[in-house]
Design a binder for these strands. Structure first.
Length: 277
DNA sequence: TTTATTGTTGAGTT
DNA sequence: AAACTCAACAATAA
């Protein structure tokens, strides 16, 4: 599942491979992948060149040289690949960008959840309102401790769904949320206003570090993630809790449990992560 | 055959 | 207003 580190890995791959490439034509075998009018999307994109690649939270932003931006969200299993001339479409190719140098940029999504929207650069939030509501990026520079304390203490929700809320902090998903809660020894059902400033400071550090390390490891491949080169990530080898239910906690040997918290599968250590109330 | 899974949005309820 | 639950989306695997 692409979370922020996986999306960032894709962004870097696309930037390395197709910056400066011109789009000569577009095929859309699965029209639902486009939000809005498909012929309009094709018309706005055809003839343009990929200038650079940005990311905000889990959204990719393809900057074109004609003042337009393609906003792309991979959702569950969306993947990009850059193929040499003459390559066949994949079984689940939703959209194919033909490039002037005969290569193709394919977007493949076995679950067909991912969506793409064309926007005017700088006005993306007009067509993708969520972009304007995203919380800060989980970085040292953007995620201030004062902000953390403020939003956690004025809210009265369970910490797990709170961390998944993209309007609070952008980019965390189920995997990294379970990891940082385990690292910080916080039970996923703990209420946000029950966390001390010291716990929030530690949680913040762990979030920033975890995301940084996952990006350095080119993301986590659990089900199907791969970068534009078709390579899997490395970070799944560094996961401490996600996917390890029934196995011993790496700190205390207690068997890790999997429970539902706000309808989301959640793995945690019942000994290290003590429920408070 | 049913259920769980995953990110996000939206509807509806407390 | 805030927070909760549930459904929907689509495909796959157990």
């Amino acid at each position: 599942m692409p979370e922020l580190p996986e999306v960032e890995t894709v962004r870097r791959g696309l930037a390395a491979l197709i910056t400066g490439a011109k789009i000569t034509d577009v095929d859309v075998p699965y029209p639902k992948v486009i939000n809005g009018d498909v012929p309009d999307f094709v018309a706005q994109v055809k003839g343009a060149t990929f200038k650079h690649f940005d990311r905000r939270g889990k959204y990719l932003l393809f900057r074109l040289d004609n003042g337009k931006t393609i906003v792309s969200h991979l959702r569950m299993e969306g993947q990009y690949s850059v193929e040499p001339a003459g390559a066949d479409w994949h079984k689940h190719s939703e959209i194919i960008f033909h490039l002037a140098d005969e290569r193709t940029l394919m977007y493949n999504d076995t679950r067909r959840f991912g969506r793409m929207t064309i926007a005017t650069t700088g006005e993306e939030a007009k067509v993708v309102p969520t972009l304007a509501k995203l919380g800060p990026e989980p970085t040292e520079a953007d995620l201030k401790l004062d902000y953390m304390v403020e939003i956690f203490h004025k809210s009265h929700r369970m910490v797990k769904p709170f961390l998944l809320d993209q309007t609070k902090i952008a980019g965390l998903g189920n995997i990294y949320t379970d990891e940082v809660l385990w690292q910080t020894k916080i039970h996923p059902k703990t209420l946000t206003d029950d966390l001390s400033e010291a716990q929030l400071a530690e949680l913040r550090e762990n979030i920033i570090e975890e995301i940084k390390k996952a990006i350095a490891g080119h993301g986590t491949t659990v089900h199907s993630f791969s970068n534009v080169f078709g390579q899997v990530g490395q970070f799944q080898n560094q996961l401490d809790v996600y996917g390890r239910a029934g196995k011993p906690c790496l700190r205390c040997e207690t068997t890790l449990e999997k429970i539902k918290v706000a309808q989301r599968g959640t793995t945690f250590c019942p000994h290290c992560q003590v429920e408070v109330r």
